Structure formats: structure tokens, C-alpha cells
Computed example of a mutant assay.
Amino acid sequence: MSSRSKEKITSAIRKFFKGSSEKTEKTGETNNNNGAKANNIGGPSAASPARRLRRGVSPAPTPSSKPSGKHVTESTIRARRLMKEYKEIQKIQFRSQKPIFTVDLVNDNLYEWNARLHVIDPDSPLAEDMVELNIPHILLHLVFPENFPFAPPFMRVVEPRIEKGFVMEGGAICMELLTPRGWASAYTVEAVLMQFAASLVKGQGRVARKPKTAKEFSKRSAEEAFKSLVKTHEKYGWVTPALADG
């Protein structure tokens, strides 16, 4: 074989291996680019949690839906306090044949109570009205806020309709003890009910024979009346009996 022929064969072999090497490099680059596109753009399957886990990529964290620590603590304190008070009142009810008051949960809701005041000062005009009209008790509705016992419950008279006695529109009750400024976390439901009974008598409360107003007698009207009286008394002071007087 001539030297010229050997050079042609060597040159052809070099071109062959060079071409194969370039093709392999291009193929690798193409695969890498496609993989990157799949990671960044990919369809539903590429973005699925299972695909990410197979690739060793952790799924993006989701915002926590759990309530804050403060909210959990307040809810726990409220529940424990109300459960304790409710059980204690129930014990008193079962022990006494004629309890001064009784309570029960509204629709099994620990944070909403009905209270029935059965005993009023027998020498008061209000007690005489109740006997005359055959009214066995005064029905009260209490709602305990999320931050109870650090905030007072909202309490209103449901029935009968009472005039004076620090009872206003919608059954709202004018008592400083029931306001944020006059409330103390040490006050119990029993203390609130006994103070209310004293306020009724000292305020010369009477059962309303005929409503003096055509306004709706509801929780909403009671809340509006209570907000208004709180603003008034914060400006001019309070005249309701002190807790110690009850």
C-alpha cells in the first residue's frame, strides 16, 4: 500500500471518530436541556408530588392552618373555666330542692348558657308581680366570648319583659360588672347572677304589663343598647350597686 493511501485511510478514521464524539456530546446536551425543561415547565405528571419525590425534590411546604398558640391557650382556659363552673352549679342544683337559680347549655354549647333565676326578694314588688302573673322564673341568656374569663359574658333578660331594675331595650342589663372596665377574671357566673338579682330589686324592677315601645325585643337590640350605655357611663360614671352590696 502506498504512503498516500495510508494517509487517506488514517484521515477517514479520524473523521469517523471525531463525528461520533460530536454527535454523542450533542445528544447529551439535548437530554440535559429536555430534563431541565421538564423540571421547570413540565405537565401535570412532571409537577406531581410523586414525580418530585422520585427525583429527590421535596414538595413545597403549605401554610399551616393551625391556630396560633395564644388562641389555643385562650380557648383552653375558657373551656376549662366554664366546664368547672358548670359542674359546680349542677352539683348545687341537684343538692337543693329549691335552688336560687339553675343553668343549662344552649344546644349543648359550652359557651352559650340559659340561666333561670327562681328566687327574688319576696318583699319586692317584682316578686309580687311574678306570683300574680304566675311567672316561675326570670330567663337569662349568656354568651361567653373567646377571651373569657378575661372579658365578661354578654347577658340579657329573655323573659319576662322587665321595666326598670337596670334592664333596658332588648333585655340589656346596665351593670358595670358586665363591662370590660368593671369586670375581673375572678368573678364567677354565680356572682354575676346574684348581683343581677340584687340590682333588679334595688332598681325597683317590675314585670312590664304592656310594652312601652314597639322596638324589636331581641339580642341585636340588646347589644346595641348595651354598647350605647357603656359609652354613656364611661363618660359620666356608674350608679349600679357594687358587687359587695349584693
Rank of each mutant, 00 (worst) to 15 (best):
M1E: 13
R4Q: 09
I9C: 04
F17V: 11
G19C: 11
E22H: 14
E22N: 12
T27A: 15
T27S: 15
G28H: 13
T30R: 15
T30L: 15
N31P: 00
N33A: 14
N34G: 14
G35C: 09
A38G: 05
N40S: 07
G43A: 08
A46S: 12
S58V: 12
T62H: 09
K66Q: 10
S68Q: 07
G69L: 10
K70E: 01
H71E: 11
H71D: 12
S75R: 08
S75M: 08
A79G: 03
E85Q: 09
Q90D: 07
R95I: 07
R95L: 10
Q97K: 13
K98C: 10
V106S: 04
V106E: 06
E112N: 06
H118N: 06
D123E: 09
A127I: 01
A127T: 03
V131A: 10
N134Q: 15
L142A: 04
V143E: 10
E159V: 09
E163A: 13
E163N: 12
G165I: 02
V167F: 05
G170Q: 02
C174H: 01
L177F: 02
A186W: 14
V189Q: 02
E190A: 06
Q195H: 13
L200W: 01
Q204N: 15
R206D: 01
T213W: 06
K215Y: 08
K215F: 11
F217P: 00
K219E: 12
A222T: 04
F226A: 06
K231D: 15
K235E: 13
G237N: 11
V239F: 09
P241F: 05
